[in-house]
């Protein structure tokens, strides 16, 4: 059975910032737009976590909106 396509994600590098993660994940977009997208697609990190936006090594960080 082939694997169906699922929402693409990355994981943070050690001590990586949102800027860096957004730039490498969405290189074709202006940085501020890329960061806004990453924030909006990853509410578990940027909305529900305390402190907000703390990137952890184990995180799943989506680099596209929901697909299904």
């Amino acid at each position: 059975m082939a694997l169906s396509l699922q929402r693409r994600f990355t994981t943070p590098e050690p001590d990586e910032s949102l800027e860096s993660l957004a730039a490498r994940s969405l290189p074709d977009l202006p940085l501020d737009v890329a960061m806004e997208h990453i924030r909006g697609w990853n509410l578990h990190i940027f909305l529900m976590r305390r402190p907000r936006g703390l990137l952890l090594g184990g995180d799943v960080v989506f680099i596209e909106p929901p697909q299904t």
């Binding site: 305390r50 703390l54 090594g57 184990g58």
Partner: peptide
């Protein structure tokens, strides 16, 4: 990948890279 301690700090396992 979910839990936090009594100070709401993520537990140690969550700081691990894959």
């Amino acid at each position: 990948f979910v839990d936090v301690d009594e100070n709401a700090r993520p537990v140690p396992s969550r700081f691990a890279q894959f």
